[in-house]
Nucleic acid binder design. Structure first.
Lengths: 229, 229
DNA sequence: TGGGATTTGTTCGTATGTATT
DNA sequence: GAATACATACGAACAAATCCC
C-alpha cells in the first residue's frame, strides 16, 4: 500500500479517487497516452498506476487492448458485497472486544464531519461516508483487515456506479451514529445487527436482482437458442 | 488476478512461486537488471511484476532504493495470521452451508496427491499443503474470498520463511483429512474447530513469541532510553 | 479482404537519487 | 565531506498487435 514510485503514485491516487467518486465510470477506456498527457508525464508512469489498480480489480487490463475501468458482472457484484459483509462483521466484532476511548473519539469526530458534509451536500459527503467504514477497519489495529476493507469498499463504490440507482448516496448517516453508540456500549450483538442492516441497505441501492442494466446479449440470447433442427 | 502483461506475467508467476517456496527469502534484494537478465528481458517487464508483487505485500519497494522480498515485522506477522484465521473460518462456514459432491471429490483427490507427495518428500509436498487451503477457498464459489485467501496464505509462507523454525513443513496432512471428513458431514462446529486447531499448529511453527530473530535495534533500545538529564 | 491509423508491448538511453569509499 | 559506483525513475523511440474504414 505504501508509496512506490514518485509520479506513478500521484497518478494512481488520482485515478483511484476518480473511480471511487464515480467520475470515471465502469467501462470507460483508459488509454495510456491520454492519461499521460493529462498528467503531463509519459506512459511509463501511467502503466505502473494501471497495474496497481488492476491488482485491486478497479481496472481491467486486456492484453494488447488496453485498460478500462472495471465492469463487474452481476455475479461479481454480489460476491463483493457478500465479502464486504463478512469483513465488516469481523471489524465490528474486533472493535467490541477492544476499543479505546481515543478510537471512540475519532469515530465521533468523523461522524460530526459527515453530518456537516451532508448538510453542505456535494461529493465530499459521498466520500466521507465511505471513509467511515475504512476508519472503522483501521481502528481495529489490523493493517491487513483495514487494507482488505479499503479494497472491498472501493469495489462497492465501483459497483454502485455501475448498477446503482441514480442519485443513490452510499450510506445514511444516522445508522453510522447508531453503530458508534452500540460500539461505545460494547454491544456486539446490536453492533453486528446494525452493520448488517446498514450494509443490506447499501446493497439494496444496487440493482443486483438481475435487473436491466448493461444487458449481456449472449446471456439473454442463450435463453432463446434452440438446437438447429 | 488475470493475466495482464505478456512477459510480466511469467516473471510475476516465477518470482511469486520462488518466494512462496522460500527459495527467495525475506530481505533478498531484487534488482531489476539482474532479474531481467535472468529472464532474458529488459527491466520494464520486471518492474511490472515487482509492482504487482508489492501490491500483495510479498515484496517491498522503497523509492529509489529498489525492491526486496518483504521482511514482515513481528506485529505484521501476527496480524496476517489472525487474518488468515478469520478468512479460513469463513471458508469453512460457507462450505458447510453449501458443498457439492463434486467439491468433495475434488478435495479428496487433492488429499490423495498430498499424501503421495508427502511420502515422496520434496518441495512438492510443501506447495500442495498450501494449495489445499486455496482449493478450499475456491470451492466456496467466491472469487473474492479465494483471492484474499490466496494472498494471505502466500504471506504466511513468507512469514514462515522468515520466522519459521527450520524444517517446519506447512501443514500436517492428517488434519486436512479430518477437515474434509467434517465437511462431508456438514458439521460446521467440528470443521471450524479443526481448522482453528490446524492453523494454530501452523502458526506455532513460527516464532512469533517475540523471539530472537532479526532484532529491531530501535525497538530494543527504546526500552533503555531515558530523558536526557 | 486489406490497409492505414491508433494503441499497446518492449527496449534502451539518460538523469536523478542513494549507498559506499 | 566529496567523489565514485550503482540502481532506479523517467522518457523517447521502435516493433507488434488491434481497431476501423
Amino acid at each position: 500500500m505504501s508509496t512506490q514510485q514518485n509520479r506513478g503514485d500521484a497518478i494512481y491516487a488520482s485515478l483511484r479517487q476518480a473511480i471511487i467518486e464515480q467520475a470515471l465510470k465502469p467501462g470507460v477506456k483508459l488509454p495510456e497516452d491520454q492519461i499521460g498527457e493529462a498528467f503531463g508525464v509519459s506512459r511509463t508512469s501511467v502503466r505502473g498506476a494501471l497495474i496497481r489498480l488492476s491488482a485491486e480489480s478497479l481496472v481491467e487490463m486486456r492484453p494488447n487492448r488496453g485498460a478500462a475501468v472495471a465492469t463487474p458482472t452481476l455475479e461479481e457484484a454480489c460476491d463483493v458485497f457478500d465479502m464486504r459483509r463478512t469483513l465488516e462483521r469481523e471489524v465490528v466484532l474486533r472493535l467490541c472486544r477492544n476499543l479505546s476511548t481515543r478510537a471512540i473519539d475519532a469515530l465521533e469526530t468523523h461522524l460530526g464531519e459527515q453530518e456537516r458534509a451532508l448538510m453542505a451536500g456535494g461529493p465530499r459527503s459521498i466520500r466521507l461516508t465511505g471513509e467511515f467504514h475504512i476508519l472503522l477497519a483501521e481502528l481495529t489495529g489490523s493493517a491487513t483487515l483495514a487494507q482488505f476493507v479499503n479494497q472491498i469498499v472501493s469495489r462497492c463504490s465501483l459497483i454502485l456506479a455501475h448498477y446503482g440507482r441514480p442519485h443513490s448516496g452510499e450510506c445514511g448517516c444516522e445508522e453510522h451514529a447508531r453503530l458508534v453508540a452500540a460500539l461505545r456500549e460494547r454491544d456486539a450483538e446490536a453492533a453486528t445487527r446494525i452493520m448488517e442492516h446498514h450494509l443490506g441497505a447499501v446493497q439494496s441501492r444496487a440493482r443486483l436482482d438481475g435487473g436491466e442494466n448493461d444487458p449481456d446479449v449472449t446471456e439473454i440470447l442463450s435463453r432463446y437458442v434452440r438446437a438447429a433442427s
